[in-house]
Design a protein around this nucleic acid. Structure first.
Length: 570
RNA sequence: CGGGGCGUGGCGCAGUCCGGUUAGCGCGUCUGGUUUGGGACCAGAAGGCCGGAGGUUCGAAUCCUCUCGCCCCGACCA
């Protein structure tokens, strides 16, 4: 079946302009080149050319995941809520999960660990059945509070998701490593510059995870990286800064009035207290229980770190009423000493064993000074809770950290037994003992691959596809096709000739002015343009133009086909 | 969820503050003609109950109320 790819018939609605609120270059170009159209907030249709590129990306994904032994599935987006309740993720996903309104017990799946584990439970009985890599390329549904940046964050998007099933932890390490390498090959083939960061597992749970990131101002993730090679998502990034420590003076703890101090900055300003000697209190409610978190000075609490310490993402800042109920004071005057009720207190590592600290007195308008964490409070739990700041030394070699914005393109997780244990997906090991399957989960946002590629490969005229992702191998630009039969014939010859050697070409046979055709060709960004005009044709020549470099050369029709062919062989 | 902005022929916009002929402009579309190596030109034409509902008024794209949609910023720091 051969599709007619004459532009006069093929649906590529290019646009000269897009509405003013489209900001990202890739978003603008994908709209202008007729690849996508928006249907609703966070919901996009893929038009024929965009869909062709999508298929090219999927091709690369399939080849590389097949190469590491993946077996392709197609799992349903519609899921029974039961399996999600088994893993307690209905609550963990919260508002993000779409629930079907007129059919109880069905949801739209935001990811597929549960379904995979369900089938593994059905059929995986023995350690001999593993290792296994199961994957699919399929649509996910996530009720994002705020979709943005075109196709980058949608409520419906296509994901390549893979899952590994292993009987040993070493096996998981191998499966994980295979995916790491496959992902590297995938993004290399797609011509995307990326970096890998250590990441948080978030609602996925699990042991270890890494993200494949693309640096971009439109990114929604912050990463701490250093030129020497440290790279971590800010959600888990750490830095090597010294703890607050102890000062020599051993002064008695003392209450003092701070009627106008609502924040650490106020304390620092009004009482001349060094910022690092302030212990900031933040109170969260975990279910119905309060937890007081102490941070150094104005350090920012990292909620992701808190989440992994608490083992749940179901927590929220306490309300004013709750603060008063549990601590005795409203925000601004809360501290670890003299709490009204028994409250779990955890503190950042930097505050461990520190003294000479100032913190709220749990009495509105009062603080304590000279608090000694060894003497005056009994905090047993110290954790790394802070968010790192640009310029701090990285924990590996001390090089300063840079904070960059990045788009998350892929994410690989060592899930461990979190899902298999919860759902009872067990196997018998060589000793005949029953164990939960050891799992990994690996995802790539397919549309994001395209958006990121375009973001990295465009100029003022349009997109510049690479050999791997280009929707067509050649773009035949027929000039004045209406008037010149010679041009039409030459174009047809090229079109057919390329088809014979299995190269797809887009043939612009429209009755439009040359300017329109040249501009559309540059906008669509096919790597090789074959420009056929009557003047050159009189000498038996056509012009080849390479989109990447702008380089041009005059060749015969036969040479043109050979040149295109060899261009893609390299 | 909080705050801000926008919704007017297919697309991109003006008009709205300060209500008043027939609602404009550019692009696109259709017809005819002239052009043709970088988004051509001339002539003519089609196409809009101004997001929706209600209200104020002699009269509403314009004012008021409600509602739907879309975009942007924010959503621990007590």
């Amino acid at each position: 079946m051969v599709i007619d790819m004459r532009l006069s018939k093929y649906f590529i609605p290019t646009l000269k302009e897009v509405t003013a609120d489209v900001q990202m270059p890739s978003h603008k170009l994908m709209l202008r080149s007729g690849m996508v159209r928006q249907l609703a907030a966070g919901v996009f249709s893929w038009l024929p050319m965009g869909h062709t590129v999508l298929k090219k990306v999927m091709n690369v994904l399939r080849e590389e995941i097949d190469r590491i032994g993946g077996q392709e599935f197609l799992l349903p987006a519609l899921n029974p809520i039961d399996i999600w309740e088994e893993t307690n993720r209905v609550e963990a996903m919260g508002e993000v999960m779409f629930h079907i309104k007129n059919r109880d017990g069905l949801i739209l799946a935001p990811t597929h660990e549960e379904v995979i584990t369900f089938h593994a439970r059905q059929h995986v009985r023995s350690y001999r059945d593993m290792p296994m890599i199961w994957y699919q390329i399929q649509t996910k549904f996530r009720n994002e509070p705020r979709p943005k940046s075109g196709v980058l964050r949608g409520r419906q998007f296509i994901m390549k998701d893979a899952y590994s099933l292993d009987s040993t932890w070493e096996g998981l390490d191998e499966s994980y490593q295979k995916h790491y390498e496959a992902y590297t090959r995938i993004f290399d083939r797609c011509g995307i510059k990326f970096f890998v960061v250590g990441a948080s597992s978030g609602a996925m749970g699990g042991k270890q995870s890494q993200e494949f990131m693309v640096e971009s101002d439109a990114g929604e993730d912050l990463c701490a990286i250093s030129d020497s090679g440290y790279a971590a998502n800010i959600e888990v990034a750490t830095s090597n800064i010294p703890p607050v420590g102890r000062i020599a003076e051993e002064l008695e703890i003392e209450e003092f009035a701070t009627p106008n101090a609502k924040s650490i900055d106020d304390l620092v300003e009004q009482f001349n207290i060094p910022e690092e000697r302030c212990a900031k209190s933040v109170v969260y409610m975990v279910e119905d229980a309060p937890i007081l978190v102490l941070m150094r000075g104005n350090d920012e609490l990292n909620e992701n770190k808190l989440e992994s310490i608490l083992g749940t993402n179901v927590f929220r800042p306490a309300t004013s009423e709750e603060l008063i109920q549990f601590t005795g004071a409203d925000g601004g005057s809360i501290g670890p000493v003299n709490l009204k009720t028994k409250v779990r207190v955890i503190a950042d590592n930097l505050l461990k064993d520190a003294n000479g600290l100032v913190s709220g007195a749990n009495k509105d308008g009062y603080h304590f000074k000279n608090i000694d964490f060894k003497r005056d409070v009994n905090i047993e739990e110290f954790y790394d809770l802070r968010t790192v700041i640009e310029g701090e030394p990285n924990p590996i070699d001390g090089e300063p950290i840079r904070i960059v914005k990045a788009i998350e393109l892929g994410h690989i997780f060592k899930l461990g037994t979190r899902y298999s244990a919860a759902m009872g997906a067990n196997f018998l090991d060589a000793e005949g003992k029953e164990n939960p399957i050891i799992m990994g989960s690996y995802g790539i946002g397919v549309e994001r691959v395209i958006a990121c590629f375009v973001e990295q490969h465009f100029d003022e005229y349009g997109i510049k596809w690479n050999k791997e992702l280009t929707p067509f191998h050649a773009h035949i630009v027929g000039l004045n096709t209406k008037k010149s039969e010679e041009v039409r014939e030459a174009c047809e010859k090229l079109y057919e000739g390329l088809k014979e050697v299995s190269l797809d070409s887009l043939y612009d046979d429209r009755d439009d002015s040359v300017g329109v055709k040249f501009n559309d060709a540059d906008l669509l960004g096919v790597p090789v343009q074959i420009i056929v005009g009557s003047k050159n044709l009189a000498n038996g020549l056509v012009e080849l133009k390479y989109r990447e470099t702008g380089e041009k050369e005059m060749v015969s029709l036969e040479e043109a086909i050979d040149k295109v062919k060899s261009y893609y062989l390299v």
